[in-house]
Structure formats: structure tokens, C-alpha cells
Simulated scan of single mutants.
Amino acid sequence: MGDHQTQSLWRMRLCSALRTALACIIVGCTTLYGPPQLQKYLTYSSFSYITTILIVPDATVGDVMRSCWHVIFATAQVLVSSVLTLWLVEPKNFSVGVAAAAVALSAFVVALPESTHLMSKRIAFGQFVNVYVGTVIHGAQTGVVMHPLGVASSTALGALASVVAVLFPYPRLSYYEVINSSLCFLLLFTHAVYE
């Protein structure tokens, strides 16, 4: 009986790992071999990978769709806040100290509301760091709108890759997860009763 439970657990973990790998492959192929018009907006492919790794593991279709909503919410917060900050301070005036203060203030504003989901906070924190550190690195060449938009599009690619990975080759529905878990519990229960 322990073998069946172990096999079931390994099968679920392997499926989760393969879906995460598929999402990362989608991100990699898109950033490396996608059309040049798309590639110029995907400036932070590393954040696309982070987004997929945050969303996909052990997730069903419903979990991924909910996480995508949290990604959209976080991206909207970051776009409004960072564009306003870059417009007020101007990219040429960004130093390491200004970037640190901007990240700290932005993180405080995002973390303050208790109603904001943890996934939204994680995504927003990462996006703020990418926007402000990228502004320090590129200086006056940084676009006030295009730079945050590049971070947002990289995040959107990660979310889209997560949706595709969970749907392919068949959707991972919570219905099947509950049935699998119920069968494992039933087998364990009957084994314990008849021993």
C-alpha cells in the first residue's frame, strides 16, 4: 500500500515538474526565437521564468487563472506607480540611493493593504526592483513608459506560458486531483481496517 501512495506522489510531482519545465521552454523559445517586434518588449526574460516558477508548481487550471489575475493586478499597480515615479524624478536623476528609496516606498505601499494577495505582492516586488534597478543601470536612456512596459510584458509572457503549460497536453483540473486524493485515502483506509 505504501508503494501505491509513493508512486502516486511521485507521479504528481513529476507532472508538476514537467509542466513547469514546459512553461520555461515556452518562455525561452519566445524570447530567443520570437518575432523581433515582440523581442524588443521582452527585456527581462529572467522575470518571465520567475513568474512561471511562482505560478505553475502544483497548480490546477483554476489556480493558474487566479494567479494570472493576481499578476494583472500587481502589474497594474507597478505600471501606475513606476511611470509616475520615473516621470517625477526623471531617469537621469536616478542614483542607487534614489532607487533604494523608491523600491522601499513602493514595497511599503504594496505590502500595506492586507487584502492584497501574497502572489500579487511577490510579483509587484520583483517588478519594482527590475524597473528601478534597470533605471539606475541605463540612466537617461531609460524610457519613462517603455521601461516599465518591458517589465510588464516579460511578466505577462510568464503568465501566458503558465496557462499554456497547465492546459497542455490535457488540462490539470482540480476535479481529477480530488478524485486521485480520495482514491488514495480510500485505499489507505481499507488497508488500515483490514490489517
Rank of each mutant, 00 (worst) to 15 (best):
D3R: 10
T6A: 15
Q7A: 15
S8Q: 07
S8P: 00
L9I: 06
L9A: 15
R11I: 02
C15V: 02
C15S: 14
S16M: 05
A17H: 00
L18K: 09
L18V: 02
A21R: 01
V27S: 09
G28F: 01
G28C: 01
T31N: 05
Y33N: 05
G34L: 04
P35D: 12
P36Q: 08
P36F: 06
Q39P: 01
K40N: 06
Y41P: 05
L42Y: 08
F47S: 11
S48H: 04
Y49K: 00
T52N: 03
I55M: 05
D58C: 04
A59L: 03
V61H: 03
V61D: 01
G62K: 08
M65D: 05
R66Y: 02
W69N: 12
V71T: 11
V71R: 07
F73V: 13
T75V: 10
S82D: 12
S82F: 09
L84Y: 08
L86N: 09
L86G: 12
V89Y: 05
E90N: 06
E90M: 07
K92R: 14
F94C: 02
S95T: 15
G97S: 08
A101R: 02
A102M: 14
S106C: 14
A107Y: 11
V109L: 15
V109N: 07
A111Q: 13
P113V: 13
S115Q: 12
T116K: 11
M119Y: 04
S120M: 03
S120V: 06
K121V: 09
R122P: 00
R122M: 12
F125W: 08
F125R: 03
Q127K: 04
Y132A: 02
V133S: 07
T135S: 13
I137S: 03
G139A: 04
Q141S: 15
Q141G: 14
Q141F: 02
T142C: 04
T142R: 03
H147S: 07
P148M: 04
G150A: 13
V151Q: 06
S153P: 01
G158T: 05
A159D: 04
L160V: 15
A161R: 03
A161H: 04
A161Y: 01
S162G: 08
S162K: 05
A165G: 01
V166H: 05
P169C: 11
P171E: 10
P171S: 14
R172M: 05
L173A: 10
Y176I: 07
E177G: 09
I179T: 11
S181N: 14
S182I: 01
L186N: 13
L187G: 14
F189D: 06
F189A: 15
H191L: 02
A192Y: 04
Y194H: 10
Y194A: 10
E195Q: 14
E195G: 15
